[in-house]
């Protein structure tokens, strides 16, 4: 077990009657890319602000490399944050923005200039040092904000929805750049996002939050393939939640009340018949073309519906056609109630 970089123990925070975080335990490892995934009101942003010191918890402890930082003010924490709105200082140039933290730390002038130039090169903004924030594009602002935090060489960098303000086309590329920067600097990144695709694509580990509680923590592959609850299964994508009572199921792990069944795991045969367990028949009600595959919504004869992903090369059923569905016992992932 490697030493922990950051550890949260029983962290609690509420706003009046609204509970934002409920006795949350969390551990961040050195140099990992960690994603906090959740919808609005899940407490993910509150958690980030507590780690940065911008808010104080009602209870619980935060340890950074074993040292208690719970009561440290934000300016005394060696943790830095990239804000969702970037929060660039409008009255300073790009270089002055990036050098702000170095000036506060009393770094010598020459060393300041060297490190600002170095980090400008890292985010590929060499020619922009003298520009003002209003003179650069959204993507460039994002990189300046990143550079302003990275120049402090933090062991832990917090990113609040780092890609949310970017155009869709820029998001994927910037995500890869973020990942590359994280590897190059060796800093641990903790990213807050509401976009499950982003979290799964970038992070080493993903934590799914809901109602101020951690629902599941694990590698993207594990969380995606083995969601622990109906909420996580639904949040991570279009998984079908099937209740054991409604269908004839023969799961590899029997006994659960409900199972997650991913749409791409269901085999669809036009016109067929349902034979035995782990099979059903129904009628195609909706079809959505997704490029590499088509998603069908099949209304089952016994009531309810299943979503089925059919690869582009396979034969496609027509709307309203009767189809047979089948899946393997291993594909039924048991869910906690």
């Amino acid at each position: 077990m490697p030493p922990l970089l950051l550890e949260a123990r029983g962290l609690r925070r509420s706003y009046g009657a609204a509970v934002a975080l409920e006795a949350l335990d969390l551990a961040i490892l050195p140099g990992e890319f960690f994603a906090l995934l959740g919808g609005s009101g899940s407490g993910k942003s509150t958690l980030l602000r507590l780690i940065a010191g911008l808010e104080a918890p009602d209870g619980g402890t935060l340890l950074l490399e074993g040292r208690d930082i719970t009561r440290d003010p934000p300016w005394a924490r060696p943790v830095h944050m990239m804000f969702q709105s970037y929060a660039l200082f409008p009255h300073m140039s790009v270089a002055e923005n990036i050098g702000y933290g170095l000036r506060r730390a009393g770094v010598a002038k020459a060393e300041q200039a060297r490190r600002v130039a170095e980090v400008l090169a890292l985010v590929k903004l060499e020619g922009f040092a003298a520009r003002r924030p209003h003179q650069i594009s959204g993507g460039q602002k994002q990189r300046v904000a990143l550079a302003r935090s990275l120049v402090m060489r933090p062991k832990l960098l917090l990113l609040d929805e780092p890609l949310a303000a970017l155009d869709a086309g820029l998001r994927e590329q910037t995500g890869f750049e973020l990942r590359a920067l994280q590897r190059a600097t060796g800093a641990a990144f903790v990213m807050v996002t509401h976009d499950q695709g982003e979290a799964l694509a970038l992070a080493d580990r993903v934590a799914v939050l809901e109602g101020g509680r951690l629902m599941q923590v694990g590698s993207p592959e594990a969380v995606y393939a083995r969601p622990s609850s109906a909420f996580v299964a639904r949040f991570l994508g279009a998984a079908n939640i099937v209740e054991a009572a409604c269908l004839s199921l023969a799961a590899a792990e029997p006994g659960a009340a409900a199972y997650a069944l991913r749409p791409e795991r269901i085999r669809l045969t036009p016109g067929g018949e349902a034979i035995g367990a782990n099979a059903a028949i129904g009628q195609v009600r909706e079809a959505a073309f997704r490029g590499d595959a088509t998603l069908f919504v099949v209304a089952l004869d016994g009531g309810g519906e299943l979503r089925v992903m059919v690869p582009a090369d396979d034969p496609m059923p027509a709307m309203g056609e009767r189809v047979a569905l089948a899946w393997d016992p291993d594909d039924l992932v048991p869910l906690a109630a």
Partner: peptide
């Protein structure tokens, strides 16, 4: 958020005032 960003980068409340709040 600008003042929070300054504090996050190591500025004490007095420094935040002189370098961010007052100039803006």
């Amino acid at each position: 958020v600008l003042e929070q960003a300054a504090a996050d980068l190591g500025a004490t409340p007095a420094t935040v005032f002189w370098t961010v709040t007052l100039p803006l």
